[in-house]
């Protein structure tokens, strides 16, 4: 059996984020380097061959200003750590920061609140040092995920949903999900070849009560990846969550939901269908399992990234280029 592999997030800052960060650093945070709550988001409608982008923009500082009311955008909560010196940034204890962030994720997994609110499937940690004299910003994202289970065994190779479902079924699934704004949910196949949305908690309860009915359930998770065989981080975290909560289920059906809008039509056939044979990890208990998730730099090594905004922020440069 082959194990499923996943495409990590690729961080994507909107330039407006840096402007707002600068303003807040000067007017609000000043030297305060305590953890701040922020949010970011991913989309499930990217073009082919695009990385699994994770976006943050100028609105992301305001927790109340969720973008979750918008279609195809899925918000993710995180922690902003704005350190005051370059030394602090370079020697920052990334291991313990990841541990802390992933324990927030894990506690929501095991206590069941993620089953009730699948927005909690993802978290992120963002470490920043802003060199405001030079307009250079050093940053490092972590998107925590767990190294348990060690494998997600596929019962059959990953395929586009069109190879698993008829176009009528795909139409019915699409229609059922039309008003769905959840990051993840479950569909139950009804008698009259239609589908009903049930939340993750209910689905897990039903499956634990009647494991033999597993083929009637299809989990849906909105997927930022565009890769034809590798889904993204939200899928990975959903599977970990389900492997923890499902007891004796032999079959797990998952659709990694991807949408695209062209010529006034919705296209979903590039969504992936996964069939897995879950192995329960409930025996690992409440202890937070080992995690991973620091984003690699442009050289694919474990290191931070930087962005230089002197040409768009430095007033001297702006004055020189002004017409």
């Amino acid at each position: 059996m082959t194990t499923l592999k996943f495409v990590p997030y690729s961080s994507a800052f909107d330039t407006g984020f840096w402007h707002e960060l600068t303003r807040r650093k000067l007017e609000v945070y000043r030297l305060d380097s305590s953890n701040q709550s922020i949010f970011g988001y991913y989309a499930n409608d990217a073009n082919d061959n695009m990385p699994a982008l994770f976006n943050v923009d100028h609105q992301c500082f305001d927790e109340n200003n969720k973008i979750s009311n918008q279609q195809q955008l899925y918000s993710v909560n995180g922690t902003l750590k704005l350190v005051n010196t370059i030394e602090e940034f370079k020697t920052f204890d990334i291991d313990s920061a990841l541990k802390t962030e992933s324990s927030l994720l894990w506690n929501d997994f095991v206590q069941g609140s993620t089953l009730e609110n699948p927005q909690k499937l993802n978290r992120f940690y963002l470490l920043i040092f802003a060199d405001l004299k030079k307009y250079i910003y050093h940053y490092w994202f972590a998107f925590p995920t767990f190294l348990v289970p060690t494998a997600f065994n596929l019962s059959s190779p990953v395929k586009p949903i069109g190879e698993q479902f008829s176009s009528d079924e795909i139409g019915a699934i699409s229609k059922t999900l039309e008003a769905n704004k959840l990051h993840a949910c479950c569909l139950h196949r009804e008698q009259n070849s239609s589908f009903a949305v049930i939340n993750l908690k209910q689905a897990v309860e039903n499956l634990n009560e009647k494991p033999q009915s597993a083929s009637e359930y299809i989990f849906i998770v909105n997927d930022p990846s565009t890769d034809p065989v590798h889904p993204g981080w939200p899928v990975r975290n959903l599977l970990t969550l389900l492997y923890y909560h499902l007891r004796a289920v032999e079959q797990l059906n998952v659709i990694c939901w991807r949408e695209r809008f062209r010529d006034d039509q919705q296209y979903v056939n590039h969504s992936l269908y996964l069939q897995l044979k879950p192995e329960s990890i409930s025996n690992i208990g409440d202890a937070v399992p080992p995690s991973a998730g620091w984003e690699k730099n442009e050289r694919q090594r474990l290191g931070s990234r930087q962005v230089n905004l002197s040409t768009s922020m430095n007033p001297i440069h702006l004055a020189e280029t002004a017409v």
């Binding site: 194990t3 499923l4 592999k5 996943f6 495409v7 990590p8 690729s10 990385p51 370079k90 990334i94 050093h138 995920t145 190294l147 060690t150 494998a151 997600f152 890769d227 590798h230 990975r236 991973a292 998730g293 730099n297 442009e298 050289r299 694919q300 090594r301 474990l302 290191g303 931070s304 990234r305 930087q306």
Partner: peptide
């Protein structure tokens, strides 16, 4: 120059410890 700059901010001795991460080298 970029490579030297980046190296300064890389953590030595830490290798990819996540076997389930797909290769994403673009």
């Amino acid at each position: 120059d970029d490579a030297a700059d980046m190296e300064e901010f890389e953590r030595k001795g830490m290798i990819n410890n996540d076997p389930l991460e797909a290769s994403t080298t673009a």
